[in-house]
């Protein structure tokens, strides 16, 4: 399975690279309303995934026969505040999390700094979780939960 995940990631990375989704100028062009490309990608991605997802859920099983397990995300103040912060980061770097790695692969040296920043940001969040949990209404940590699916 590891090879399958590697292959899927490779295909995803290649597509993001060649579609402009990992391109600083195309990201700015989207936010400036000058380029439709990224809106088209997101809209098509959702428009094709949604019916496929509906069919899969109706079938209720994976191709190996396991019951389909989809962890739904919760809504809290962190959803709003975090996404606003992420939007700022996406604009500044011209990369969302996947394309940070894609840009590193492409050889864009500065993307390594973006990854370092993202890891520091994630680590800061982990360190501050106890303090943030109540004010943002975040879910309690489940260190020993069912191991069915990540989030």
């Amino acid at each position: 399975m590891t090879l399958l995940y590697l292959a899927l990631g490779t295909l995803f990375g290649f597509v993001l690279s060649r579609a402009g989704a990992a391109d600083y100028d195309y990201i700015q062009g989207m936010f400036l309303f000058e380029r439709f490309q990224l809106y088209g990608i997101l809209a098509t991605g959702v428009a094709v995934t949604a019916p496929g997802l509906w069919l899969l859920k109706k079938y209720g099983r994976t191709l190996t026969g396991a019951p389909l397990a989809i962890d739904r995300k919760s809504l809290n103040k962190g959803t709003v505040a975090g996404s606003l912060l992420f939007g700022i980061g996406w604009s500044l770097t011209g990369m969302c999390p996947g394309p940070i790695l894609v840009n590193i692969g492409e050889g864009k040296v500065y993307a390594i700094a973006a990854l370092a920043g993202a890891l520091v940001g994630a680590a800061l969040f982990g360190a501050a979780y106890d303090a943030l949990q109540k004010p943002f209404g975040l879910p309690a940590l489940k260190v020993t939960a069912r191991g069915a699916a990540g989030h």
Partner: peptide, 8 residues
């Protein structure tokens, strides 16, 4: 920018 993205 990365810190914003990682934390956010």
């Amino acid at each position: 920018g990365g810190v914003f993205t990682g934390f956010g």
